[in-house]
Design a protein around this nucleic acid. Structure first.
Lengths: 213, 213
DNA sequence: CCATTTTTCAACCTTACGGTGGATGGAAGA
DNA sequence: TCTTCCATCCACCGTAAGGTTGAAAAATGG
């Protein structure tokens, strides 16, 4: 198995490399600490499996995977993520990948995942699986219609009803209606609470929770 | 030098350990992956230096350091943090520690920091230093008076003027005045934008950005 | 002690916001 | 086909929010 690692933390890189060096059926053929280099490495080495961090400087790890699919079609991708990133995980599920592992996981679990994926199976960390299930069970945003979700995202950007109306090419009346529905469904008092709620769930300007100022 | 490592990511732990094993003047005497165990380890081994992750499950790494000061007084503390946590860094500066390093840093930099701290000096990653300087230079919240900051925190909790007034034992007029001042000073349109702004800076309900849902 | 800033309170006005009720057309599904 | 849900638009109403101006304690700092 030829592996490529993409993570912006040298220590994590080192850690994984050490874990893998102990296995004789695996080999790390290349590493990268940002997406740009990562793409290049994937193209050059054409590995069997790539471990990619979800959070990379500049662009999301998922965008890199999307691009990498084209230049390294045979490569399977395993997403590395942290438990504290769970707000992003749901969004991450949109792009299909072969595996999800938590950085909090034990090294053995990582090896396990790699071997499973090598056998053309999918590995999703049980903790992540549980997060997804729980989220879909009692997440009030599930009650929102697609259009309401769209409006909620604009709310999370601090926009007024009028601006949202212009952005969506409808009248302000319509937006007011949607906002009312959102507030009722989520049991919130006003748009500010809705904005904060949405923002805390990872909506709003991408990455602003971490990139803020 | 006797070191203790506290980080909830086994891979990072492994990475640091490998880096340090190559040095003959250093020795890792204990590791922990959460605050509770961390305190115990610090008490038992009484190390010279401890590397502590800023984000730990449950409580903030800083709270652990605060507690650890009492049970391991001679121990110097180096905070490990990620660049994406920079919203937390400012808050972290309140608790005085001997060193700050980024996980994105090269291993040599970490060794360098440890050696400096061992010589009773302080090491702050130049990138972090720059973040702090930039923040203090053009951070609009610096223009706010203490009272306005207080009100801003309530805004970040999604509270109405009336509720804030009650909480602070003043009239609603006063809060309206403060809110107007805040909006003008920060160049924002309405309370929602103010709330989002404050929230992204780490105000609002503690840790809700990451613990949400 | 004086100047400045901060905090507080107040009146007035305009606008945005949120609640309520109703109406329409379309799409999806039983 | 009929029903349900969704998205859209409209009107009315009350209240909250934000801008403006002014002013008077209170604290700060030289």
């Amino acid at each position: 198995m030829r592996l490529v690692l993409i993570d912006d933390h040298p220590l994590v890189l080192q850690g994984i490399e050490v874990v893998i060096q102990g296995q004789k059926d695996m080999e790390v053929v290349g590493t990268a600490s940002c997406g740009e280099v990562g793409i290049k490495v994937l193209q050059d080495f054409q590995p069997d499996i790539a471990l990619v961090d979800l959070r990379l400087p500049g662009e999301y790890g998922l965008d890199i995977i999307k691009r990498a699919r084209k230049i390294a079609p045979q490569c399977r991708f395993i997403v590395l993520t942290s438990y504290s990133d769970r707000a992003d995980i749901k969004r991450a599920m949109s792009e299909k990948v072969e595996g999800y592992i938590l950085k909090e996981a034990m090294p053995e679990e990582i090896l396990n995942a790699i071997r499973l994926v090598d056998k053309n199976r999918t590995y999703i960390d049980p903790v992540i699986m549980q997060i997804l299930l729980n989220q879909e069970k009692d997440d009030p945003t599930e009650q929102l219609t697609p259009r309401e979700m769209e409006v909620l995202e604009f709310l999370a950007m601090g926009m007024s009803n009028r601006n949202i109306a212009e952005a969506l090419f409808v009248t302000e009346y319509t937006i007011k209606k949607h906002v009312s529905q959102i507030l009722e469904k989520l049991d919130l008092a006003d748009r500010t609470q809705a904005a904060l709620y949405a923002f805390s769930k990872g909506l709003g300007p991408p990455g602003s929770a971490s990139i803020a100022n």
